[in-house]
Simulated assay, not measured.
Amino acid sequence: MDKFKFEKLIIWQKAMDFGEIIDKLALNFPEREKFNLASQIRRASDSIALNISEGSIGQSNPEQKRFVGYSIRSLAEVVTCLFKANRRNYINQSTFIELYDEAFHLMNMMSAFRKNIK
């Protein structure tokens, strides 16, 4: 495909993959969290890729930087949701560490990408 500029961005591809992992994870949260933590973590994880793509379409460089910043903030929200899920025993420690590390790697990639926008 690759008809849109953002499709070629590794950070967008990684954000898309991360969002799918989080979506599947949230399916295992208790029913009582369906409209709370499960919904929140899904929306935040989706927002990462959504903001990367929005910032890459016909935007000025300051606009693109701003949208990547929104993506980083959404990722921080996901990490906080992961902490909540771990504390509430919805996910085990090894799953938490695996996703936390993936989030940290993605954040570093997005931060480097944002710094390189001229």
Rank of each mutant, 00 (worst) to 15 (best):
Leu37Thr: 00
Arg43Phe: 00
Val78Thr: 08
Leu25Val: 05
Ile21Asn: 14
Met1Asp: 11
Met107Gly: 11
Met110Glu: 12
Ile22Asp: 02
Ile11Gly: 10
Lys3Leu: 10
Gly69Lys: 01
Ile22Cys: 07
Ser60Val: 03
His105Gln: 13
Leu27Asp: 13
Ser60Tyr: 08
Pro62Asp: 06
Glu31Gln: 10
Arg87Gln: 06
Asn51Leu: 11
Met16Tyr: 14
Asn28Glu: 14
Gln93Cys: 03
Arg66Thr: 07
Ile117Leu: 15
Ile21Trp: 01
Arg32Ala: 15
His105Asp: 15
Glu77Ile: 02
Gly19Tyr: 00
Lys115Glu: 06
Thr80Ala: 14
Asn36Lys: 12
Gln59Ile: 06
Phe18Gly: 10
Ala44Gln: 06
Asp2Tyr: 13
Asn51His: 15
Asn89Ser: 14
Asn92Pro: 02
Lys3Gln: 11
Phe113Leu: 05
Ala76Ser: 14
Arg43Tyr: 02
Ala44Ser: 13
Glu77His: 06
Pro30Gln: 04
Ile91Ala: 06
Ile48Thr: 13
Phe6Lys: 04
Phe113Trp: 11
Phe4Pro: 02
Lys5Asp: 07
Gln93Arg: 12
Trp12Ala: 09
Lys115Met: 10
Val78Leu: 01
Phe104Val: 11
Cys81Pro: 01
Gln59Gly: 09
Asn89Gly: 03
Phe18Ala: 08
Met109Asp: 11
Glu102Lys: 15
Tyr90Val: 00
Cys81Gln: 04
Leu9Arg: 09
Ile57Lys: 05
Ile91Asn: 00
Arg42Thr: 06
Lys5Thr: 11
Ser39Lys: 14
Glu31Ile: 08
Ser60His: 03
Ser60Glu: 12
Glu54Arg: 13
Ile57Trp: 02
Asp17Ile: 13
Glu54Lys: 15
Asn28Pro: 00
Phe83Glu: 14
Arg87Ile: 08
Asn108Tyr: 08
Ile97Ala: 05
Phe113Glu: 05
Met107Asp: 06
Phe35Lys: 08
Ala85Thr: 02
Ala103Trp: 03
Lys84Ile: 15
Met109Cys: 08
Gly19Trp: 00
Gln59Cys: 15
Trp12Ser: 12
Tyr100Lys: 09
Glu77Trp: 03
Ile48Asp: 01
Thr95Pro: 00
Glu7Ile: 07
Lys34Arg: 13
